[in-house]
């Protein structure tokens, strides 16, 4: 599904941040990418999302057999790659329901399907709201405007549940969550799990992984994946810290 090959990237005209990432993600798999601050986690997410201001200097990323970097951010999303933001953006004046409907229809249009009927669409959204324990009033509030940290993250997952990505890339979705919100968000992510969908969790802390069990864990340090393993690697990290693993790999 996603195949990253020797990826090097930097902030435009800045110093190199990603220094040779290799990663393959297959349908049905859940990967966790863990790393300390400054290891390149967010840069990797933004580069895969297609944000302006980041520059791929070498290497490739193939998504569903296509060159990912040739696609605009909206084309990536329509093709099923969705990025959950570490800091979801507040957009005053744009109601949640408008964003959801516009995004949902953009995807349908991309697949050559007719636009969703409003009634059916609302029914679908209400179902997903319930999963995220969100009140219907959320739909009529401006996107993330004045939301608490937990509400913002729940809103990200709500969008995922509605848009049903093929590959969900979650950037520090657990940051800033209290234990109750973490549980709701994790439940939401677990509902996304399926045999034809892949999930990549990017996180600093192990605690998210006790709710969402990954198939693979990768440790990112200084722009490279220095170690990969199964979920026991996360437990090892918890015991010896990043420093232990980094020293061991060096």
């Amino acid at each position: 599904m996603l195949k990253i090959n020797d990826l090097h990237a930097r902030v435009e005209n800045g110093t190199p941040i990603l220094k040779g990432i290799d990663l393959e993600v297959k349908p049905g798999e859940v990967h966790a990418i863990m790393g300390p601050n400054g290891s390149g986690k967010s840069t990797l997410c933004q580069v895969l999302g297609g944000r302006d201001g980041y520059e791929v200097t070498s290497g490739t990323a193939e998504y569903l057999g296509e060159d990912l970097f040739a696609l605009e951010p909206e084309e990536r999303a329509r093709a099923g790659l969705l990025l959950g933001f570490q800091y979801p953006v507040e957009i005053p004046g744009v109601k949640n329901i408008y964003l959801l409907k516009e995004a949902y229809n953009a995807q349908r249009k991309h697949r050559g399907e007719p636009e969703a009927d409003t009634f059916q669409f609302l029914k679908l959204v209400r179902e997903k709201l319930q999963m995220m324990q969100m009140d219907e009033s959320f739909l009529h509030r401006a996107v993330n405007a004045g939301f608490s940290g937990g509400e913002k993250k729940r809103n990200e997952i709500l969008q995922m549940l509605v848009l049903e990505p093929k590959l969900a890339l979650l950037d520090e979705t657990d940051s800033g969550l209290d234990i109750d919100a973490l549980k709701i968000v994790s439940d939401g992510v677990n509902k996304l799990r399926s045999a034809d969908r892949a999930i990549v969790l990017v996180t600093h802390y192990q605690r998210l992984l006790s709710y969402i069990e990954p198939d693979f864990v990768h440790v990112l340090s200084d722009g490279r994946i220095i170690k990969s393993g199964d979920k026991t690697l996360a437990e090892e990290l918890e015991r010896s810290g990043y420093l232990g693993i980094i020293e061991e790999a060096a």
Binding site: R51, A77, L82, V89, V94, Y98, L99, A103, A106, L163
Partner: peptide
């Protein structure tokens, strides 16, 4: 904001329209 909307699959022109409209609508 523009990037956020695009990252949800909304085209650039539509996203710009949404933001301008939202600005006025406030």
């Amino acid at each position: 904001s523009l990037y956020y909307l695009r990252s949800r699959g909304i085209g650039t022109e539509a996203a710009r329209g949404m933001l301008v409209f939202a600005f006025a609508d406030e």
